[in-house]
């Protein structure tokens, strides 16, 4: 059945994501920090498109189109992360360091970690994956209470990690 994982488990499988128009390929990830959009259902929504200064994300009309992203234009600035009402976007950087990658994801819980804290990173079903180190906490006014946390973590868990366990 189509999108079986999303519609039974609650979150999409990697396979379901790879079949969506916005999900990056291995090649795209080699470029540097890029936005990853896990939005694979046609819902009426386009703030990702309107928030992007680079014009990298396209939804078009009708606004229920799935978002598409041009990774040649995306610079991984992260403006779309807090703009997405569905909290379905994060920035991943495979090129962050030799052994480590960086993820910047939306987080709307308390308490917040501090920069330098070691946190437990989790996958799409909330499963614990590995530890990571908080490198940045972005809580500017434009985020409107959607905090964007940046955490570095071992590269071998690159595709699985999407968030952190709540503290």
């Amino acid at each position: 059945m189509e999108k079986q994982y999303l519609k039974t488990i609650g979150s999409p499988s990697l396979e379901e994501l790879k079949n969506s128009p916005a999900f990056p390929t291995e090649e795209d990830y080699k470029k540097g920090p890029i936005a990853v959009i896990e939005c694979i259902e046609e819902i009426p929504c386009n703030p990702c498109e309107t928030s992007c200064f680079k014009g990298a994300i396209v939804v078009g009309k009708p606004i229920t189109n799935l978002p598409q992203i041009d990774f040649q234009k995306c610079v991984g600035c992260g403006i779309c992360v807090a703009a997405c009402p569905g909290l379905a976007i994060y920035i991943k950087d495979y090129t962050y360091a030799e052994e480590e990658a960086l993820i910047s994801f939306p987080y709307e819980y308390l308490p917040l970690p501090k920069v330098g804290d070691i946190v437990t990173l989790a996958g799409r079903r909330g499963e614990e994956i590995c530890e990571g180190k908080v490198t940045k906490i972005n809580n500017t006014k434009v985020n409107n209470h959607t905090v964007v946390l940046s955490v570095s973590f071992p590269k071998n868990n690159f595709l699985e990690v999407i968030t952190m366990k709540r503290l």
Partner: peptide, 18 residues
């Protein structure tokens, strides 16, 4: 047998471990 809400909403609580 299938979840009713938007996938982005279910994914949000799913990754929180619900």
């Amino acid at each position: 047998p299938r979840l009713g809400g938007y996938g982005v909403h279910t994914a949000k609580v799913c990754r929180a471990g619900v």
